[in-house]
Nucleic acid binder design. Structure first.
Lengths: 348, 348
DNA sequence: CTGAAAGCGCTAACAT
DNA sequence: ATGTTAGCGCTTTCAG
């Protein structure tokens, strides 16, 4: 059995088939004409030896690696794993591979990831920057000789094309919806305030609140269920308790809902709840939770498209991370009205 | 600005530093002694040029690629994305990269994936086989000259080490629990019956049912919410309706729960419900859903360990997919008793 | 301590 | 139509 055997090489195939290496190369790449007879002999040799071309050698000859790097905070996060799914599918349909590296939103880890991928000579990057404002990241990316697309969060300076959702709008819209329902004390539970997306959402919230002449109430200390429960308790027992809660990310929404339920607090009667990010069962729990839904699939899709446009247009391996007019795509979000905001289950 | 510039090479660094290529190679790999002065000059040149070693060239010299392939049905599936997260973390801590390829449980796609990864000369594989019984897959894997670990589903013949959960036990245990509650007509909603995991679970269910002298009722036609609702309706309106439902996978459990809720059927009064696979909010919806919980994190972790044991023990690049005693690790599941089975929310 | 030179497996001129 | 040959960027004897 051919277990421990190393990989056979092209010249071994050539020898076995009694032809030159060029000929073998030709039948593999199917480019130029080869006599049917010779071809058959070569293919037989390939079969017999179980030959598989060594990509490394091709790459060394100046060809691209046909791999792209995907640099994200976490692959366990449904948002990013869904993006990964579509990116992978599109990459594959173009005969490219995806290498995923996670950063936990840590800038140093992120820099390392980019460098590692560069050493592997990936042909392009899709990256969700840990820190959109980072000067270090920007200059690192700008000197890469391959196309890059920022996903979910832009890179400062707008020189890198990016595909992000309109976080400001999403949050503003949700907050206005709460205001229209008549809530006056709407507290915003933020999560990691250092992230671009969260900051944008906070801006949207504050804008809506202030335009309505209300007072913004920001609470940034929630990071898990325990802290959620603690904060909710504190808030609701305060002399001037909130009548609505707006949570800025998936996990926080769920923690908050669970805390509210455990504490026996009625939604939306005692406090209304609107969350950012849709999630499984959001429409099934009671009350069903009103959320801002992000176009996750589309984000991944557009990012992949943008990348491959560049990848496929630069024939050799050139292509630059910078284009004359890097596109900044901003996708719309959608407010899914369910019951937790005070809307009636069926109807307006 | 160094935008479009190609990558500088080692010999360019050498020239700039006024030394030989060997010396540069040495300071990069930090293996042999180099005069501090020379070293400084070289490192300066490296900095100045922004040099990054070309992995392809290293690989060609006979070194490993330090990449592993991860072949799974889908990366959007929380089960696999969580596995990917831990695999990636462990790989990275060993200075390895992970390339993810998805198969949608299609054997042809899977075969292609393995071949693509082989051409890229990955140093190892973690794979969740689309078809555990496939002779083709088995022989394909057995002739690979690199270590392989099967995840979640074994490869027929037990020659490939595998890390799977004890699906039989999990399902048997859950079914017995339902039987203990006194249910007599327990229907099993299966999902993709061609998968190893599902078949094992069906076996466990049938074993428990038959041991109790009951009649197994299998329903294999559910694949989305629509079909779930349809089947539930049909079942509950039949002359001899079930008094309990056992769903064999995550998505099916959720679809079933939603259908039951929409149809206004009381759980567990009218029908009890137990699901395979825990999920977000399973403990929060009303009633909270009793489930068989899989050790997802541990599965990924053990698989990664097994792979790296082999990877790290075969110094050069050898290592075989086959060992004298390929380990077949089977991990325990846990029945999480909540309310949907008839257990009282708090207490036994 | 350092350099020259031989390849790793493949492709692409250039011959034939 | 097919073979010969020169590298791609790097590591690694083998000398100096």
């Amino acid at each position: 059995m051919t277990k421990k055997s190393k990989h056979p090489t092209l010249s071994e195939v050539a020898k076995k088939a009694g032809v030159g290496t060029t000929t073998v190369s030709r039948v593999i790449n199917g480019v130029e004409r080869v006599e049917p007879k010779t071809m058959a002999r070569v293919q037989q040799a390939i079969q017999a030896l179980g030959y598989m071309p060594n990509q490394a050698a091709r790459v060394l000859k100046g060809h691209r690696t046909r791999t792209i790097g995907f640099v994200i905070p976490s692959i366990a996060d449904p948002f990013f794993s869904n993006c990964a799914e579509v990116l992978q599918a599109i990459a594959r349909s173009n005969d490219f591979l995806v290498i995923v590296l996670t950063t936990q939103n840590d800038s140093a880890t992120e820099r390392d990831a980019v460098n590692i991928l560069t050493q592997h000579r990936v042909d392009g990057f899709v990256i969700a920057p840990a820190d959109s404002e980072s000067e270090a990241l920007r200059s690192l990316l700008l000197r890469l000789p391959v196309p890059i697309v920022a996903l979910d969060r832009p890179v400062a300076g707008a020189l890198v094309p990016s595909v992000v959702a309109n976080n400001f709008d999403g949050a503003q819209h949700a907050t206005r919806h709460l205001i229209k329902h008549g809530y006056k004390r709407i507290v915003c539970l933020t999560g990691e305030i250092n992230l671009y997306t969260i900051r944008e959402r906070v801006r949207g919230y504050c804008d809506a609140i202030e335009s309505a002449g209300l007072e913004p109430i920001l609470e940034t200390s929630i990071h898990d269920y325990e802290s959620a429960e603690h904060v909710i308790k504190k808030l609701l027992h305060s002399p001037n308790p909130p009548d609505a809660i707006f949570t800025l990310k998936n996990r926080t929404t769920i923690d908050t809902f669970e805390a509210l339920q455990k504490l026996g607090i009625s939604i939306p009667k005692t406090v209304a709840l609107v969350g950012y990010d849709d999630f499984q069962l959001a429409g099934t729990v009671r009350p069903a939770i009103t959320v801002v839904q992000q176009p996750i699939y589309e984000l991944g899709h557009v990012a992949a498209q943008l990348l491959f446009e560049r990848l496929l247009s630069s024939p050799a391996s050139g292509g630059s991370g910078v284009t004359s007019s890097p596109q900044q795509v901003q996708l719309k979000t959608r407010l899914i009205r369910r019951s937790s905001c005070g809307c009636s289950p069926k109807g307006a």
